[in-house]
Write a protein that binds this DNA or RNA. Structure first.
Lengths: 143, 143
DNA sequence: CGTCGCCGTATCGTAGTGCGATACATCGCG
DNA sequence: CGCGATGTATCGCACTACGATACGGCGACG
């Protein structure tokens, strides 16, 4: 009789909107921080994401273009261009895929590894500081 | 003698990189979800953020251009253009500021209010589902 | 009560980047 | 060994955030 506990149906009150807005604000602030610090080191935000996705790839430390497209939530050819630019800056390089001649292994260069180390460290620190704002809101609903 | 407990100094291990990457992946997935659903309703992601920032503004439900620039982490004139586009679609409108003739009150229209309600509801639901992936990582550090 | 520095808003041209459409090579299956 | 499926690359385009700049109201000071 009471509607199912699916929150999607219930209308939002002012508090909900504020929570949603605050969370989005948190994300923006984090990305903004990231962008600034990353640019200071000579890369674009996307390039940092690329490097991080490689180094942080489960099991290995490289990935194919297609895998990256999934992890970065981009189209394949957007990743191609991203890799092109990063390669031009000697952050990553392409290596042949052992099993599939169509695919490409994108791997970090020494230089890429180095910058990433520094940047990731700074990000970890900032994340610790921002944890409160960045945590997704808890709904005061299902009391 | 042991370095201070400031994490920024300690080098990251594979697990840290994976955690960082997973979190960024979560953000991307959420923004991606948001973008898709928002576009399906005829707005751009930025427009949704604008509406949400207005409706979710602490205390009131409107804001000046400058305040929005802070909340959206954009430059003032980027917000101007964003408001221009949103106004053209009848999502928001400009009203004079009671106390300061330089400033502008940006307010939601009825149409804007309506779409926002539906979109915010969907976002709240998705946030519930994604909470696990979206939570900032806890560092296994100071063990 | 007029002038001047300051702040908020708006305009213009530009650069970066993600996308759709398309092309091409390789894989694997019958 | 041909053919659809899959992975990568190319081209042109559109969107949007930005820096530089301009304009107008504001408040303070003499």
């Amino acid at each position: 009789m009471a509607p199912p506990d699916d929150q999607a149906a219930a209308p939002l009150d002012k508090q909900d909107f504020e929570a949603l807005a605050r969370f989005r604000f948190g994300i923006r602030r984090y990305l903004r921080f990231s962008e600034e610090i990353v640019r200071r080191h000579g890369l674009t935000p996307q390039q940092y994401q690329l490097l991080l996705a490689l180094k942080g790839f489960p099991e290995r430390e490289w990935a194919t273009v297609r895998e990256l497209a999934d992890r970065l939530q981009l189209r394949h050819h957007s990743v191609v261009e991203l890799v092109d630019r990063a390669q031009k800056q000697d952050l990553v390089e392409r290596a042949p895929h052992p099993d599939d001649a169509r695919a490409v292994r994108v791997v970090l260069t020494a230089a890429g590894e180095e910058v990433l180390g520094r940047l990731a460290s700074l990000h970890r620190a900032e994340l610790g500081r921002m944890a409160a704002v960045l945590s997704p809101p808890e709904w005061h609903s299902p009391g």
